[in-house]
Each structure stands twice: as C-alpha cells, then as structure tokens.
Amino acid sequence: MTEKSDIESMILQVGLGDRAAFSALYDATSAKLFGVCLRVLNNRAEAEDALQNVFVKVWQKASLYSANGYSPMTWLITLARNTAIDKLRTRRDGHVDIDDVHDLSDGAPTPEAEAVASSERAQLNRCLQELEAQKSEAVRRAYLDGDSYQDLAVRYDVPLNTMRTWLRRSLLKLRECLSR
C-alpha cells in the first residue's frame, strides 16, 4: 500500500515537471480515481475519458498543490469527482438517454465494497445519520450522483425552493455535528 506521504511527495515532484513521478503517481492512484469516475458516471468509456482529463489537470495544477492545504488523496479525489460530475452534467444537457447509460453499469463496483471506515468516515456517517434519512440521502446523491436541486426536488416531490432550504439547513446541521 502506498503511503499517503509518498503520494504527497509524488504530487510535489510532478509540480516540478517530473514525468517519472507523474507516471508513478498515475500507477499509485489511477485505480482509486477510476473507481470514483465509474461510480459517478456509470459508464466505462466516459469514465476512461474523465480519468484522462483528471490526470491532465493533475499535470497542470500540481505546482499549485502545496499552497492549497488539501491532503493529497482528497485533492486527487476532488479533482476526479468534479471532473466526472462535469462530464455527467454535459451528458445530461445533451439529453443522452439515462436509462441506456445505466444499463452499462455492470462493471461498476458496488458501493459497499471494501468499506474500511476510518474514524473521520465514522464521524461523517454518524453526522449524516443525525439528519433525516431523506436529507442525508440527498447530500449523498448530490455528491456521488451529481443530482441537481431540480433532480432532488423531483425525487422527493417537493418544490425546488423547499428542496434548497432543506439541503442548506442539512448542510449547516452537518457542519455543526462535524465540529463537535
């Protein structure tokens, strides 16, 4: 298992234009980031495209990494998740049939796989559980499935403004719980 600090030093080396470090960083992290892209996009070809875009951004932005205060895996996972969500939104704007896309999801990992809960993860779970079930599910759906307020309003059958008020209050409760 690659140590967290190894990932950090690889990112810093990539920031200096080190191609060997870039290759090593890809080898160490691409499987996790591909998993994230697959989870969000549910489509192998799109996830491959997204993964490639993620690492182009890593190459371009690594020199800025040391200034942003992110832990290395969070930085990489955030890049991957955001890239995948952007791609998902582009697809939705293009009116690709979502049902067709979901049919291709067989290769995607199950969400429960390799659930090794860290203490931070346990705390997040506990705080999500303090929210009403629908509200914590809405937060998860926004983060991992790229649901918009419109998607969530339809899903929970509430007006858009109500959905937004719900979710904002849920975020504040979550923040309060996490800071305890």
Binding site: S30, F34, Y70, V116, L144
Partner: peptide, 23 residues
C-alpha cells in the same frame, strides 16, 4: 475533505493500459 470520505467505500478499478498511453 469531508465529502471525499464518502468515496472510501468505492473500490479501486484498474483502468485499461490504453488510458495511460493516451494520456
């Protein structure tokens, strides 16, 4: 940092070698 913890449950999937080559 908080939300990325939700990805801990996501299993790694090795991407095809062609992705690295294209990249």
């Amino acid at each position: 940092e908080q939300f990325s913890l939700m990805t801990q449950d996501i299993a790694p999937v090795t991407p095809p070698a062609a992705v690295k080559a294209r990249l």
